[in-house]
Design a protein around this nucleic acid. Structure first.
Lengths: 156, 156
DNA sequence: TTGTGTGCAAAAGCTTTGCATGTTG
DNA sequence: CAACATGCAAAGCTTTTGCACACAA
């Protein structure tokens, strides 16, 4: 069975668990998300669906994203620009992001030491931690041809 | 010299550096920010100024916050709720945040291991990293009286 | 005096909501 | 067929913008 079908099966299970309906929109939006490898916003996802001649409203895209996030199939990020960005979640370990303030490139990384920090912090602060977001902001050294002056080094 | 005057002096220096004017609004807003110890949004700051009978517009609060961030005196955060939160920055080492998904409590922590991760990632990804944001989401074990069920464990 | 900063209100952009319609279970 | 999901448009919020006026340099 291919990846697309596998992920749809997982959605089916999660929807059943929650007593939610299996609508065409939910599967189609899930598929569109898993077809991409980037970090996208709601509008990009909406337009990609329309470009495939699949008719959905923005409201449904928003609603469905919430559902998919709740099901653990999509992740939502706030990188500081306006609006949220999303990416598929399944099969991808928790990972951090590195964002170029100049060209907006987004890279991902994994570092097992982060897990250690999470455990320490959870213990010290008396928290049950179940999600994390680590973002580094800076300038990528190649590709975006930026002169590294001392000005505007602060992201928002 | 007290802390408030010290911070105002720093602002003076930073404004001069940038050729920006020393307006009453900038100093007053800075002072209002340094009078608080919490994470606040634009509206809260705006209202606190009005409550002191200091007249500013929302636009000026937004503009001034940008200036203060650029001067390194204020930090902006995106914790996932709508809108950004701010806090004073000077004299506070880079620190991570722990956010309770249930009661919205925000705690802070420092972990030197994060710096190590930042350096590794910078080297591996070929980035000049100059800012970081680490947020852990979870439930605080006391104070917010939450039943820890298996549902709604996913923040946005 | 000169030009930047502010105030106000309107606009813009992202996200949510309400209601009617359509579809799943 | 009953409840839930969708579509559409309108409303809500946060943030930005444009223009006239005020004030710092």
């Amino acid at each position: 069975m291919n990846t697309t079908n596998k992920i749809k099966d997982i959605l089916s299970i999660e929807l059943e668990k929650r007593g939610l309906r299996k609508t065409i929109e939910r599967y189609k939006i899930l598929e569109a998300i898993y077809d991409r490898t980037d970090h996208f916003d709601v509008e990009e996802l909406y337009l990609s669906l329309r470009k495939q001649n699949f008719h959905v409203s923005r409201a449904t895209v928003y609603n469905t994203l919430d559902t998919l996030i709740d099901c653990g199939l999509v992740q939502k990020h706030h990188f500081g620009g306006d609006g949220a960005l999303f990416e598929k979640a399944l099969g991808f370990r928790q990972h951090g992001h590195v964002v170029c303030i100049n060209c907006n490139k987004i890279l991902e990384f994994c570092d097992p030491r982060l897990q250690t920090i999470q455990e320490s912090v959870g213990n010290i602060m008396d928290f049950n931690i179940n999600d994390q977001a680590l973002i580094f902001y800076g300038y990528c050294k190649d590709g975006c041809n930026r002169n590294l002056s001392d000005d505007d080094k602060k992201p928002d």
